[in-house]
Amino acid sequence: MKRFLAWLLLVLFLFSAPLLAASKSIILATTTSTVDSGLLDVLIPIFEKQTGYKVLTIGVGSGMAMAMGKRGEADVLLVHSPKAEEALVAGGFGINRRAVMHNDFVLLGPLDDPAGVKSLNGAKAAFGKIASGGVFFISRGDKSGTHAKELSVWPAKTVLSNLWYLESGQGMGATLMIASQKKAYTLSDRATYLSFKDKVKLVILSEGDTALLNPYHVIEVNPAKFTKVNAEGARAFSDFIVSPAIQKVIAEFGKEQFGGSLFFPDAK
């Protein structure tokens, strides 16, 4: 019995020792689009190598990411929900909000376009047609940046009835899969759509409207408000992602695989 306990303690110690060592880490709360598109898989290793920080990337919707910022549960945010971001900074929870990059949203639907939105001009008109068209629309429904954008595009007084308006409550990738299976319409950021193009039966039916621009910002969580925030690490990441060299990496990302950039650098 004693020997067994000794072994047990040894095993526990061996397992836990390396876990306790990682103190120089930062928590990055970000959107599913930066994770699902694979961009962070490229950027994070460069950052970790350059600075020695360990990045804990939590890929959630922008809403959840900002909620984490508001509670001081994250150190730095990379998000795309401008109105909510401004409120976060105005409330003193975030500092040093800087533009990182943008892409745009596209309205997707089945190839045969049963609602007939392809010929319409502008995103609002297309959304209006879907609301009256007897087709399904899959919403993220998770307070993400995409969800916020989608809600802002519906024409005033549109009733989002659950007869045709379905909320997936999941990330962009999962929502695309659902829309494809249900032959429904959905709004997606271009980056995630391009990286899923081969896996879903959805085509772009409306694009290019300025209402569909999708800007990403980096925000550091205010260390004056939360003492546990790793301010140095957050600043290091924030400086890193807007640096000229990394902006170039962002511009190049995806060109080889998808034949076009997924994100366009915005840092000044």
């Binding site: 836990s16 876990l19 306790l20 990682a22 103190s23 928590i27 804990l56 939590i58 509670r71 001081g72 549960e73 939360f226 546990k228």
Partner: peptide, 15 residues
């Protein structure tokens, strides 16, 4: 971090 055991910094770790 804001929770009662937040000072351990165990969230998002294998622990």
């Amino acid at each position: 971090r804001s929770g009662p055991l937040g000072f351990f910094e165990w969230i998002y770790t294998p622990i």
